[in-house]
Computed example of a mutant assay.
Amino acid sequence: KLMDNTTWLANHTGRSYFILLGLFSQSKHPTLLCVVIFVIFLMALTGNTTLILLILSNAHLHTPMYFFISQLSVMDVMYISVTVPKMLMDRVMGVKKISFPECGIQMFLYLTLAGSEFFLLAAMAYDRYMAICHPLRYPVLMNYRICLFLAAGCWFLGSVDGFMLTPITMTFPFCRSREIHHFFCEVPAIIKLSCSDTSLIETLIYLCCILMLLIPVTVISSSYSLILLTIHKMNSVEGQKKAFTTCSSHMTVVILFYGATIYTYMIPSSYHTPEKDLVVSFFYTILTPVLNPLIYSLRNKDVTGSYANIIPHTLISQSL
């Protein structure tokens, strides 16, 4: 039955594979761009992995805030690994094809990770609200079990997005060109290849994005409104400064990630061009995973202090 369904799907779509035109076809210096992307990919892996290991190895960082930051780093490592290795391998091997099943799997993983990150950023804002507005009850209100529950909820809600949009998108009949003007199988780029009426799925995507954004944005805006009120009432200047530093790092990540996503999925298609879509997708798919660990590391004294403590110990152990 599985073989019959696969055959039917391939015949129904008229294609068993797609062609990813990617970033390199738009570049005057594709080899240089390939090297740059490879370096960015290594930086993202190194930065996020180092941050995860640092949080796991340092007991001082075993708090809800750093637990959520480590979850964000895990998502970023997986997020960039879904698209970049395939793109670089295709460039090196001179292949641009992606099979129908591979495209569906890539789309599902991408949607799941992006959706999970939406809700994780909301959970992080809620955690900051609890820490700043209810400091005395914070250890009870945000214990380890609750943090695990929130993180699991973020992953589950993200997977709902993937399970809902991927089958609908991939079962459309694709009788136009096989060429995807993108570097991975993103929903809007795939829909453009369909020869049937896509207005229904475009409406569904719009409504889905509203729901996926409305809940986190409501939590984030409510949390930060209450945080600002609490900070305003603080008598300690040092306490105000620390609260602002922590919250500004998180808000920077929120603006970067949500802004690019709103453009891709919620701005009318008449405002889109393949070139603009590539640039925006490159920004939040490839650059954001690099920026997140830098934002949380450079603006966080606890993390920079942990780095400072680990480096001397590493040098001493190597000398011995």
Rank of each mutant, 00 (worst) to 15 (best):
N5F: 15
L9H: 14
H12M: 12
F18I: 02
F18N: 05
S25E: 11
Q26L: 05
S27L: 02
K28D: 14
H29I: 09
V39F: 05
L45F: 05
L45S: 04
T50R: 11
L53F: 04
T63S: 11
F68V: 07
I69N: 01
Q71N: 13
V74E: 10
M75R: 05
M78I: 02
S81C: 12
K86C: 04
M89H: 04
M89I: 14
G94Q: 01
G94C: 02
K97F: 07
P101V: 01
P101R: 05
E102A: 03
E117D: 10
M130W: 01
A131E: 11
I132A: 06
L141C: 01
M142H: 00
M142V: 04
N143E: 08
R145A: 09
I146W: 02
F149M: 06
L150Y: 13
L150K: 02
L150V: 05
W155A: 15
G158H: 03
S159Q: 06
T169Q: 13
R178I: 12
R178P: 14
H181C: 10
F183V: 05
F184R: 00
F184I: 00
A189P: 01
S199K: 10
Y206C: 11
C209N: 15
C209L: 12
C209A: 08
M212V: 10
I220P: 01
S221T: 10
L226T: 07
L229D: 14
M234Y: 04
S236Q: 04
F244P: 00
T245H: 02
C247A: 12
S248A: 11
S249A: 15
V254A: 06
F257W: 13
T261S: 15
I267V: 14
P268V: 05
P268Y: 05
S270E: 13
Y271S: 07
T273P: 03
E275M: 09
D277L: 06
L278I: 06
V280L: 07
F283Y: 14
P293T: 03
I295N: 03
R299S: 14
R299H: 11
K301W: 11
D302H: 02
D302L: 08
D302K: 11
V303P: 01
T304P: 00
S306P: 10
Y307F: 10
A308T: 00
N309T: 07
H313F: 03
H313Q: 15
S319F: 13
